[in-house]
Design a protein around this nucleic acid. Structure first.
Length: 534
DNA sequence: GTTAGGG
DNA sequence: CCCTAAC
């Protein structure tokens, strides 16, 4: 998150992210950030670091708020230092913050949570908070106005800082040259993009206000990472303890289950010696694997706790939904973070990244082929990783039918080697399961056809063409599945000749029966003739 | 290691 | 698609 000043001197909240990110995630942040603000007054544009530009004027033009005032009024405030204008551009290089705003402050707020902090402040004190947050002179409209103005920003400040793992923002209390300096610094991976500071001389600030400021500063400081704790000078160790207790009370959002699983997988990679399809259980090692699996589950649970604990250590984890950890990402920081010196830098990184680094395999990315990555991601045994469901394409189904017609049923591993060697995500078990499903579909197709007429849309998603099912039925006649016990493990040639022999036997039996029936008929006819003769 | 079968 | 037993 950043607060920056446009060319016209209008301060603006906006969300920015470093590193590859989805525009929708930015939108999500903007949604969070601008919640509670009503009026549409501004249009803007944010260029993401990945050069993906997301024009949010269409969606968020009604949520961007801005503050009125002359462009220089805030800068001319006595005792206020300005460091932020333009820093964002300098820091992010290619990024631009092209924000053009008309000026008319119309701030509304709906959320009263952050206003609790402001309830005990006078209008003048709120003005001071406002000025230090936004570096703006605030006209007094009514007693509530500064609160209205501050509360959404403060609320978003807190929510974003508790949720964002990309930026650190803190309102710090420092003793600086005999003055109590209240500063709000915004950082991107340690680089200051803007620092908003307001200083008040001790004599200029009432004791009551100083106390309130300190409370506010304490609350804000809890949102900062440990890397900043050393910079935060709290009044006493008691207060620091209280601050820690508060931090423990307000926990960050727990990472989603999928994220934990991905994390567990990355750890299991570290411990795993064998990866890929070949890493499967053997009968002899079954019990061992079972116990190992249980251990891994415990490790996963411990890891979850570790993850949460680490979140307090380095700030808060904000896990982007739908962005599973890529295996290749794990190695990116590996080389630079192996040394002891770099351990301190971990605190500036996301805790998730830190854990990823810890559990990343020693192999470099180049040493791992894409195929192997897929295998690791989807089929590694021993982890709780759930295989991503990928629906069978028609070409895969045709390949399966071809495989059955060539190899017969039951030789799934051979089929996998012959026809599905390029499909790393299709195991022999998958092929077998698909054939079973096709058999079911072919058997019930006639019944389904009636339903299809009634509910076409329901069947449209996974409907198998009738021609394919017809072919499946033909193959099912030739290769009944499941096979008989005697046929299992035999070749298709053997099965063919076995079936041929069976057919011959059946025909021979039929001939014998026919002959016997004929003989019986002849015998009966002879008997009849003999009786008639006498 | 591979396959069958239940879930 | 997962899991387990059986081979």
């Amino acid at each position: 998150m950043a607060i920056w000043q446009t060319g016209k001197g209008v301060w603006l909240f906006a969300a920015t992210l470093l590193g590859p990110c989805e525009p929708l995630y930015v939108v999500e942040l903007l949604d969070i950030m601008f919640q509670g603000m009503d009026n549409a007054v501004c249009h803007g544009r944010i260029s993401l670091p990945t050069c993906q530009e997301y024009l949010w004027e269409a969606k968020h033009s009604d949520k961007v708020f801005k503050l009125e005032g002359g462009p220089d009024s805030c800068l001319q405030n006595a005792g206020l230092e300005s460091h932020s204008p333009g820093v964002y551009k300098e820091c992010c290089g290619a990024e631009t913050a092209d924000l053009s705003c008309e000026s008319t402050p119309r701030l509304g707020y709906k959320d009263n949570r952050s206003s609790l902090l402001l309830d005990h402040m006078s209008v003048q004190e709120r003005q001071l908070v406002f000025r230090n947050m936004f570096r703006y002179e605030t006209p007094i409209i009514d007693k509530q106005w500064p609160k209205h103005s501050i509360s959404p920003g403060l609320q978003n400040f807190f929510e974003l800082e508790s949720g964002s793992n990309l930026a650190e923002c803190g309102l710090m209390t420092k003793k600086n040259e005999g003055k109590t300096v209240l500063s709000s610094s915004i950082e991107f991976f340690g680089k200051d993009t803007g620092t908003i500071k307001g200083s008040l001389s001790d004599e200029g600030m009432s004791r009551d206000l100083q106390v309130k400021w300190k409370k506010l500063a304490d609350l804000e400081s809890l949102k900062t990472s440990n890397s900043r704790v050393s910079e935060i000078e709290l009044c006493s160790s008691d207060e620091r303890d209280k601050a820690g207790a508060f931090a423990m009370q307000k926990r960050s959002r727990r990472p989603p289950r999928r994220y934990i699983e991905e994390l567990a997988q990355s750890k299991s990679k570290f411990y795993s010696r064998k990866c890929g399809v070949a890493c499967k259980r053997s009968k002899n090692s079954f019990l061992h694997v079972r116990s190992d699996k249980n251990n891994r589950q415990k490790e996963t649970q411990e890891e979850t706790l570790l993850c949460q604990d680490k979140s307090y250590e380095v700030g808060c984890i904000q896990v982007p939904f739908g962005l599973p950890v890529e295996a290749g990402q794990l190695e990116e920081h590996n080389s630079s973070l192996n040394s002891e010196d770099c351990k301190e830098d971990h605190k500036l990184l996301r805790s998730s990244e830190k854990l990823e680094i810890e559990y990343s395999p020693a192999k470099s990315r180049e040493e791992i082929s894409d195929d192997e990555c897929v295998l690791r991601r989807s089929t590694q045994k021993g982890s709780k990783q759930i295989k991503h469901y990928t629906s069978w394409t028609s070409s895969e189904v045709m390949k399966l039918i071809e495989g059955v017609s060539q190899c017969g049923v039951g030789r799934w591993s051979a089929m996998k080697r012959l026809l599905f060697s390029s499909c790393s995500h299709r195991t022999a078990v998958d092929i077998k399961d698909k054939w079973r499903n096709l058999l079911k579909a072919s058997c019930t197709q006639l019944q389904k056809e009636r339903k299809i007429k009634r509910d076409i849309s329901k069947q449209a998603s996974d409907h198998v063409p009738e021609s394919v099912l017809q072919r499946v039925r033909e193959l099912a006649v030739i290769y009944p599945y499941p096979r008989r016990k005697s046929q299992q493990g035999k070749s298709s040639v053997y099965v063919f000749f076995s079936s041929l022999s069976q057919v011959v036997v059946v025909i021979w039996s039929a001939l014998i029966i026919a002959v016997r029936v004929t003989n019986l008929a002849i015998y009966l006819l002879t008997c009849v003739v003999w009786l008639l003769a006498f």
